[in-house]
Each structure stands twice: as C-alpha cells, then as structure tokens.
Write a protein that binds this DNA or RNA. Structure first.
Ligand SMILES: [Mn+2]
Ligand SMILES: [Mn+2]
Ligand SMILES: [Mn+2]
Ligand SMILES: [Mn+2]
Lengths: 242, 242
DNA sequence: ATCTAAAATTAGTCGAAGCTAAAATAATAA
DNA sequence: TTATTATTTTAGCTTCGACTAATTTTAGAT
C-alpha cells in the first residue's frame, strides 16, 4: 500500500520514490534501533537482544533497511536512523503510547498489560485512526508509564529525568516515568503506588548493594533494589512545604 | 503464539493439537469462505474474487487450510468450513463488527470508512481486548450496518431479512441491514438516511428495470436502482398507525 | 604485538503467501 | 456426443523474515 510519494528533486533529476508503510517487522526494528541508540548508533547485538531474534537476522535486516534509506549502515559499524527512519520510528512510538493510554484509561487494562497489546496494534492502525484516537483522549502529552508522546510531526519533548539510583540522598524527587520493559517490575511498582507524578523523599542510597530507600507522600517507606531503582526515572523537586 | 491446547481424546489416543492464532491471511480466507458459502461450499473463484487474489493462490491456501483442519476440501470440489474453521471465522467477524461499532460511535468515523480499518484491526486485537471493547460498548447486538454480532461462543442470530427488491409493493418494511461491500453504495444510502432501523413504505417495484420506489417516515421518496436495492435488506412490518 | 573472546557477517535453508504460465478437469452448448 | 469455454490445478518462481552453522572481524587482555 503506497502511503505517499516523495519526489526528491535534486539538480533536475526527478526520481519520485514510493514510500510504503513499513511492515510490522521493519517497524519494530526501527523502534529498537531508536530505543537502543538515541541519536547514535545501534549494535547488531543490542537489537537482537531487544527483539529476541538472532544476530544474523539483524545483520540481514540492517542491509535491507539501508536499501530502503531508513538507516545508515556499514558492516561491523552498527546502524543509525536516517531522518526518514527516525520519523517512521516516532510515528510508531506515537501510536504505541496513545494506544496504551486508551487501553488503560478506557478499557480497564492493568498497567502492565497494555504494552503487549499496543506492540501489535501499533502496526495495524492507520494515521487517521491515530489522530482520531488522540482527539478522543484529549491529546495527552504522556503515556501511562510517563513516556512523552511524540507529535504527529515527530517532535519529542526533551527528557531531563535520571534514574532514581543516581539521586542525592536527602533530596525530594518526583517520578517522571517508569520503564515499561518488564511486567514484573511494573507489577511491583504499580502495587506500591510508585507511578509517574508521585513525590518521594530519598532517605538512603546504600553504597554496598545500591538499595534505594524512599518515603512517599503517605509516609510509607519503600526499599528498592537496583533492578527496580534503575526502572524509575525522577526529576528533582523543591522541598514541599507541609 | 499458542492460544490454547485442545486435546482430542478418542479411543485412548491422546494427541493434543496446538491451535495457534490464524495469520491475517488465513483468517481472511476463513471469513471469505464463510461469507461465500454460508453452510455450504465455497468455490475457488468465489474466494479469489472476494480477496482479490489469483485462483492459484486460493487452491494453494485451500490445501493448507485442510492441513490445519479448518476446512474440508477435495480438488475441484470447493471448500467448506469445519467446526473449528467456522468458530475461527466467527471470532473474526465478532471482532470486526465490534470494532466497526467503536469507530463509528466513539471515534467519529463515517459510515463508509469503518470497514477498511476494521479489516486490519480484527487481526491485531486479542480476545481480551475484544471482550473489554464489547463491555465498553455495552454489548451491542448489531454493527452499524445492521449485521448481527456473534457471541464469544460463536452463536449468531438468525437473519430472516430479504432484499428490498423482493418486497411486496404496498408493504411496510423496516431496514434490517445494508451491505457493507461498496463504499459508493454506503455513501449514497447513508446520505439519504436509508440506514438500519428506518421504516419504509414500498410504493412501486418496476418490472422492466427493477427500480424500487419507497417513501420514508418523513414523506421523502427514494428511487433505488437494482444495485442499490440489492444492498438493502428489510423485514416486513405491520402498517404503522399515524 | 599477539592471543583470545566477543561480536558480526556470510552462506545456506525454511515456511508463508503471493504470482504467472501451462495443463487438466468440469460444465455447457451445439 | 463432441466441441468449446470456464474453472481449477500444477509447476515453478519470488519476496519477506526468520533460523543454524561456519567464518571473519574487531576489541580487550596479556
Ligand atoms: Mn510492535
Ligand atoms: Mn509505555
Ligand atoms: Mn481482515
Ligand atoms: Mn459491518
């Protein structure tokens, strides 16, 4: 299905290139490269682990993505998204996060269930669906995990949060987002009310094992091992008066 | 992804068969066979035309569906759904019709846009999604075109409607459903308020060209050529007192 | 500078799902 | 009954996106 035609008109040469909607596989690779690399370059192994496919499959796909002008890639050098690749990736990220929001807020999904369903739906919905859904949801800026939702044009709010484990003991912080990778992690965090927006006081960051102890607004204390604390991203907050 | 395991335990033999979710292609073939055949048998050409694929592709898929115990099929004899095939088809039909309802009632889709989007989404949503959506929608019995929505168990309301062209002149009829095949048809019917639930008086069914003339509740008169009148299904209604 | 281990690539294979062209079968009309 | 046409099947190819096993390259440690 041809989505649009981009005519690249350089020095009189007019070869108009057909841009077709990326397949689910191609889309997931683009997202994985984006997640693994930010602006930089993603290694074969990184992507293989993220997508649970063999490294050989990734090498193969990197070459195909290069053919499609979605990445720059030289053997043994990893892949980085082109402008086109990045915009395709962010289009999927936008869909994913809007869908998660809908599932949680309107269909009664649990916090940890939404990711898997969105991972499939993001490839099936149209741009028209996506924008109508955004309208229906009231154009939210963040998804349930706190991740910012890219605009239709691919702009993404800057993220200046940092892992809870790197906070200063004695600081007040607010949870900005939580990693949506592991359902076990989400399960635990959600069960203890450690969700985006929550205000915390950092009591201790123990050097030996990295366990972080925080107190929440209700006076409840939580001790988080480093696998948990690495999944919670916070921003400093002025000490609340109360 | 394995959805469930069915253990067929006949005469001590216990070979448990894995039933995996049908691919989008397999699912669309099952639906096409169901639509083309009702209870009977679907021909290669029927299905090829419905799905816009070559007859050779259909022959190939018929053989594969037989391997999977989804159809009964003998060469040159056409294919008919097994119990298993029928239940898979109806599961997709349920999803399709619920999704159409959601798109129309909550996302502001037009009557004629919903079909295409639902045709893709039906393969991406889970059973869990489907039932939560049904709950969200208030468990509707019919989709926007008037088609009955199968239950999760695969029960389907009997349809005793008939094409408008076969009605008796002078009869009162109520629109039960409209065919969702052609967007042009839907466009016209919707634009004239000829939607499921609408009460009509049949003024004339002209023998020469099959044009049907009806008057609606607002006293408006509509003349429908046979391609339109074949897309409208009605049931007789007692003459309204007014 | 050399050795070793990790990472990446190549080569070859597979299944799903499509296609075209040619051959076979069934259905219809003369 | 035979000839013609429509339908269906077969054979052979193609693309996508996986895989394993073998090889090559890079990076890290001695
Ligand atoms: Mn995905
Ligand atoms: Mn998320
Ligand atoms: Mn479909
Ligand atoms: Mn419908």
């Amino acid at each position: 299905m041809i989505i649009t035609k981009v005519s690249s008109n350089i020095l009189g040469m007019n070869d108009s290139v057909e841009i077709r909607a990326p397949s689910a596989s191609v889309g997931d690779y683009l997202k994985a490269i984006w997640e693994a690399s930010g602006e930089g370059t993603a290694s074969t192994k990184d992507v293989a682990v993220r997508l649970s496919v063999s490294p050989a499959s990734v090498t193969n796909m990197f070459a195909r993505l290069r053919e499609m002008d979605l990445v720059e890639y030289e053997r043994y050098r990893g892949a980085s998204l082109t402008e086109l690749g990045r915009s395709q990736a962010l289009r999927l990220v936008r869909r994913h996060r809007l869908i998660e929001t809908f599932l949680l807020e309107h269909l009664g999904y649990d916090w940890q269930e939404v990711h898997e369903e969105a991972e499939r739906l993001e490839h099936a919905v149209s741009d028209g669906f996506t924008e109508r859904l955004a309208e229906f949801l009231g154009h939210p800026g963040r998804d349930p995990h706190g991740d910012p939702i890219p605009t239709p044009e691919g702009a993404l709010e800057a993220d200046d949060s940092s892992p809870l484990g790197e906070a200063e003991p004695g600081a007040w912080v607010r949870i900005y987002k939580v990693s949506d990778e592991s359902t076990g992690t989400l399960d635990h965090l959600g069960g203890h009310g450690l969700v985006p927006g929550r205000l915390l006081y950092v009591e201790e960051i123990r050097v030996v094992d990295g366990v972080v102890t925080v107190r929440d607004e209700d006076g409840e204390t939580h001790a988080l091992g480093d696998s948990l604390s690495r999944s919670v991203f916070v921003r400093n907050e002025p000490r609340p008066r109360s």
